[in-house]
């Protein structure tokens, strides 16, 4: 593949030996945090997700990849309770998640971010952070009327938030409205806010999308740090280089199904993945095509970029059609 302009300052420690037995789609994990069975979701005639069996390893970084419309975000929505499956069930940390609402899933320690960043622009950065904190008594209606009940907790949360903001280099912005932040900073804020609740599993939907190259470096470090602090990370990403760089395990989806999974290097060599995801463009640097990595677009890459855009539109159109 072509030149690799990715940051080299980080030397991730890869977790290995996550699976049990032969590597294949649906392989058992030594210590899974999520176990999903027979999860399907249909929109009209289109099957968006059809996952027979999937386990996500604990305390590791798992990447969920696949072409547009492969059902990655839909699977995310299902696992986090933002959408309801037609069939199937899954457990999170041993707890059956059937019929568990999105906010309850979050309370159980499974937090997510969104593809289109949802920083709350009309709240300040600090207010955004404090909103992420768990069990604030003042968020209940009657105690909220009397500051005595919640002042102390508020102060503790503030200290914790400042600490996190420092890590994410947002501490100087704490009194600014989130709307005034740059796109990348909003992504960071969203992640920092999610961490306020001390989650077990952090689910990031395209954390790198729209982040300028200067910030990707620190984002990657943050994701790696999460693992070091004992959390599990599941993220959706397009950029192969980033996936290869930080992921311990890669799950590949296409047409709603899991077509392959395994450690990054092995998955990249898998013919099914090449067929499903890379198509005939395996020589093209996806980072360049998606515009996230600067590089020269050779004619092949240009052609692919066009095709991807075309596909994107078609998928968007069909998704709209479901509305």
């Amino acid at each position: 593949m072509s030149s690799n302009p990715l940051p080299t300052g980080v030397t991730p420690v890869k977790s290995t030996g996550l699976h049990v037995g032969e590597i294949a789609p649906g392989v058992k994990k030594v210590d899974p945090i999520i176990i999903a069975d027979g999860v399907t979701r249909k929109f009209g005639g289109l099957t968006a997700v059809n996952v027979e069996h999937l386990e996500i390893p604990r305390n590791a970084i798992t990447a969920l990849i696949g072409p547009n419309g492969a059902g990655k975000t839909t699977l995310f929505n299902l696992l986090t309770g933002f959408d309801k499956p037609d069939t199937g069930s899954w457990t999170f940390d041993g707890k059956n998640m059937k019929g568990v609402a999105a906010y309850q899933a979050a309370k159980l320690g499974q937090v997510r971010t969104f593809q289109l960043t949802k920083a709350l622009g009309l709240l300040t950065v600090m207010e955004n952070m404090k909103l992420g904190a768990k069990n604030q008594v003042g968020e209940r209606i009657f105690p909220s009327l009397f500051p005595g009940f919640w002042r102390k907790q508020e102060a503790t949360n503030e200290v914790k938030a400042l600490d996190l903001l420092k890590k994410f280099k947002l501490d100087t912005k704490q009194t600014d409205f989130a709307a005034s932040l740059s796109g990348g900073q909003r992504k960071l804020l969203e992640m920092a806010r999610a961490l306020m609740s001390d989650p077990k599993l952090v689910m990031l939907d395209e954390p790198m999308a729209g982040v300028n190259p200067a910030l990707t470096q620190s984002l990657l470090e943050h994701i790696l740090n999460l693992k070091q602090e004992g959390m599990t990370v599941l993220f959706v990403e397009h950029d192969m280089h980033m996936v290869r760089h930080i992921a311990d395990w890669v799950v590949v989806m296409a047409m709603g199904e899991v077509v392959a999974e395994g450690p990054p290097d092995e998955v990249m060599r898998n013919q099914k993945v090449i067929d499903a995801y890379l198509g005939s463009h395996q020589d093209v640097d996806l980072g360049v095509v998606t515009g996230r990595v600067k590089g020269k677009m050779d004619p092949e890459a240009k052609k692919m970029a066009e095709e991807v855009e075309h596909l994107d539109q078609a998928i968007n159109a069909s998704e709209k059609g479901d509305n």
Binding site: K118, L120, S144
Partner: peptide
């Protein structure tokens, strides 16, 4: 109060607030 903060968050984007366990 924090209750009002949650409410203002909901006004803007309820999915974001839901994802934070409210």
């Amino acid at each position: 109060s924090p209750w009002g903060r949650v409410l203002r968050g909901i006004r803007e984007d309820e999915d974001a607030v839901r994802a934070l366990g409210k």
